[in-house]
Design a protein around this nucleic acid. Structure first.
Lengths: 125, 125
DNA sequence: TCATTTTGACTACAAATGTAATCTTAAAAT
DNA sequence: ATTTTAAGATTACATTTGTAGTCAAAATGA
């Protein structure tokens, strides 16, 4: 599985916002959230290409970069990995701990209910 | 916040199992799960002391190590951090994604229901 | 008592990571 | 046409991490 460092993940975020994208666009997008030097971002892009999390096509002398992995896939895999390591693969302890100190919205509750309903329908079947 | 590497976290796991503990005990516990050389574990223990995740008391020429941070605290903080970075701080997307590919137990479901109930009681109040 | 083992302290070293700077070449500006 | 700029390639360098090895002192065994 492709592993991304935190900085690399930030670059992926910028790329997931829209692609293919030129390095100048990625740098532009990241300028909102970070103070990174453009050289830094180029370095990170290069590492992402090496890791095959990103690929590019040449448009003349410019490169058009695209992610090779989806945000959903990546974040979910990482989340599962953490849940495995920290909570023996069970999600409920995480949710109850989380709920104790974080604000849950009505939408969160609705989505949790939907998950439960789906599970119960599955059981009855 | 104290940040632990993966290897350091494994050592903490061994220490959380029971403490204070001598390095020989920690090494013994870790021998079940890893192939680490005892020197490696000593190094990691030293780094944990430096990071102040662990402290020790001298018992003669031996050290008795103890964690300074709780497992619950640490894992929950890291989880929140991940939820923040990956899901804008909302837990529901994680839960629904998780539920799609992982097995949920009846216990998980019960705990999720309890979280929901608590939230709803809070709202009505 | 002398050799051996064990503990903790210190040192080692490659890979990954954060954070750029320099070099080369082509395009853009004057 | 020459200078300046911008992109990508290559190089740099400190810190963190994984994974030990060496050294000194104390304890233990023969």
């Amino acid at each position: 599985m492709i592993e991304l460092s935190k900085a690399e993940f930030e670059v992926m975020e910028a790329l997931w916002q829209g692609h293919p994208a030129k390095s100048s666009e990625i740098i532009e997008r990241l300028s909102d959230d970070t103070q990174w030097h453009d050289k830094t971002i180029k370095t990170l892009l290069g590492r992402l290409v090496k890791k095959q999390a990103v690929n590019f096509e040449k448009q003349g002398r410019l490169y058009q970069y695209s992610p090779t992995i989806g945000r959903e896939d990546y974040t979910l895999k990482q989340s599962k990995n953490l849940i495995q390591r920290f909570f023996s693969g069970r999600i409920a302890p995480l949710v109850s701990g989380f709920a104790k100190t974080e604000q849950l919205s009505q939408q969160d509750i609705n989505e949790l209910k939907a998950v439960i309903k789906e599970w119960e329908d599955q059981q009855g079947k």
